[in-house]
């Protein structure tokens, strides 16, 4: 494939043609802030934080969608860009609840990270805020619309598992835009399969893993990556250790060919956690407590083991 040579912040590099400026910068070690962009997802350019200046063009361009071309000269941290990034972050904070102290996402929240990086803080105002609508219907996922920044990562990742998932979608318009499950159902009554793909990609605390809440915070945890043994895909899960004990499992970002699923996550919990929480199954649009045997479909295995164990069979 043909290469193109461009300059980013004064440093020249060559990348294969078709590479975005965002990725080219990353390969140089230049991190451009972005909330909506993720390597596993289609590019939408919604958050506008990754805007860069390109020499010869007055118009700013989003680096996530801008293809590198020969001779292109890009600046990623000019005073103008910093001013706009601060303004955009301020707009997001103005609609966001100020509860980082107790938010489970603290420490790994991208909004928090960029607000810190660009020195933007919460402020008092009389204007509108996103209504606090928290969906607590699922034992696996907490969906808190008041924290949602509408980056759409969850919608796009849910959309990638065709037919089986495609649960989350945008609804409403303008400031009243929301992410909904199916036609505005709860996670419980919708066809959500609790795979936690959305949770793993949510940059803020709008979609949280409910089974990790209150147990451990990212900075006090030791995280070990485990490969799921539930099926051939081999998805990856993070096992969180606190004081040497495995306390929680969290789905890692979905990778190509690795869809993530509830069964795999529960299997990983059972395998690694000291005291896994009770599992739940969704039956007819209702979550009910279930046994591990039922949830993981182990009955046949157990029957077989018992059969093998039967005293009559022993020689």
């Amino acid at each position: 494939m043909k290469n193109v040579t461009l300059t980013i912040n004064g440093k020249t590099l060559s990348v294969p043609s078709g590479t975005t400026v965002f990725d080219a910068a990353r390969s140089l070690g230049v991190e451009i802030p972005a909330l909506c962009h993720h390597e596993s997802l289609p590019v939408v350019s919604a958050c506008r934080l990754c805007l860069v200046e390109v020499e010869g063009s007055r118009k700013l361009q989003t680096s996530c969608s801008l293809l590198a071309t020969d001779g292109m000269k890009v600046q990623t941290e000019t005073p103008r860009l910093i001013k706009y990034r601060r303004a955009i972050l301020q707009l997001l904070l103005d609609s966001h609840p100020n509860d980082c102290l107790t938010c489970q996402k603290a420490g790994e929240c991208l909004l928090q990270k960029y607000a810190y990086q660009y020195g933007v803080t919460f402020r008092e105002h009389d204007g509108a805020r996103r209504p606090a609508q928290t969906d607590l219907s699922s034992p696996y996922i907490v969906k808190d619309d008041s924290k949602c920044i509408l980056c759409g990562r969850c919608v796009r990742t849910c959309d990638q598992v065709e037919k089986e998932r495609q649960v989350l979608a945008f609804a409403g318009r303008g400031y009243a835009t929301r992410i909904v499950a199916d036609d505005d159902k709860t996670l419980e009554t919708s066809k959500c399969v609790s795979c936690n793909r959305c949770v793993s990609l949510c940059p803020v605390g709008a979609l949280l893993d409910r089974r990790i809440m209150g147990k451990v915070r990212p900075w006090e945890a030791e995280v070990r990556v485990k490969e799921c043994r539930s099926c051939d895909y081999g998805c990856h899960f993070d096992v969180y250790y606190k004081d040497g004990k495995a306390v929680a499992v969290k789905a890692r970002a979905p990778e190509p060919g690795r869809p993530l699923c509830l069964r795999g996550r529960l299997m990983t919990e059972l395998l690694w956690l000291e005291r896994p929480d009770t599992p739940w199954r969704k039956i007819g649009g209702k979550f009910v407590k279930a046994s591990w045997v039922k949830v993981l479909g182990l009955q046949r295995l157990i029957d077989k083991m018992e059969l093998l164990d039967a005293p009559g069979d022993r020689q």
Partner: peptide, 13 residues
């Protein structure tokens, strides 16, 4: 506003 990008969705409000 369709609600997709931050400046239009939040800023115009």
């Amino acid at each position: 506003s369709c609600g997709k990008c931050v400046p239009c969705r939040e800023g115009t409000k």
